Amino acid sequence: MRKIQKILVHELVSQEIQNYIQEKELQEGDKLPSVEEMTQMFGVGRSSLREALRYLEAVDIVRVENGKGIFVRDVDTFRFSGKVKVERERNFLLNTLEVRKALEGQAVVLASKRITEKQIKEVESCLKEYRILKEQNKDTSRVDLAFHRHIIKAADNPVLETVMDAISGLYEKFFNDPLGDKQLFDETYPFHITMFDAIASHDTERAVEEFNKMMNCIESKIRTFQL
């Protein structure tokens, strides 16, 4: 059974404003009703409405000019709906990445101290498959996820592994078509190799350094992604 996601008031209001723009067939530069008028239209408080407007302004859907009013900035249908979706997923991934850095970062520390020869061979096999798929320009998301699961397993901490399993749905979002692009994080491939080399040689400091490079690369790709 899927959990019901919590929806904040300003998210509902932002959607209603978008619906209003589409229903009224407003064009770029057209003026929206005032804050006072929209609080009455949608039956919400000024704070929720202003938060919704800040969000819509951040994703280039409206433009707020002090003393003049609120204006439509972008009404292209595809970009209109797409920008909102991307912005929500971007924020989700960035928030989840903060948790991933903490948990998986600790797994890297432990793995660098506890990885076995058998596990080293398993990761080597995984990286070999990763390289072949990448060279053939095929989807690497499955083997990428498998690589990280090997590292978590090598940490040999059942509690940490259980916690990671508990957030697997959030974690796997990085590998399952993030922001609609299966190859978004292909640039992290070299860090898989350097991080593993450090783990295999039990060099904790270098393993963490390479892990952080990978996470910084992912964060940069998320923040700069455009439709």
Rank of each mutant, 00 (worst) to 15 (best):
M1Q: 11
R2G: 03
K6Q: 14
I7K: 14
I7L: 15
I17H: 02
I21L: 05
E23N: 08
E25C: 00
G29P: 08
D30R: 02
D30K: 06
S34L: 01
V35E: 11
G45L: 04
R50V: 02
V59H: 07
V64T: 02
N66I: 05
G69V: 08
D74P: 03
V75A: 08
F78A: 11
S81R: 14
V84G: 13
K85N: 08
V86Y: 12
R88K: 15
E89N: 07
L93H: 05
L97A: 07
A107M: 06
A107R: 10
I120G: 10
E122N: 12
E129N: 04
R131M: 04
L133D: 01
T140L: 02
L145R: 10
H150P: 08
H150T: 03
I151M: 05
A155C: 14
D156I: 03
P158F: 10
A166P: 04
A166R: 10
A166C: 06
A166T: 12
I167N: 07
I167R: 13
S168T: 09
L170R: 08
Y171L: 09
N176Q: 13
F185P: 07
A200P: 05
A200D: 03
H202C: 02
E209W: 07
M215W: 01
I218T: 01
K221N: 02
Q226H: 12
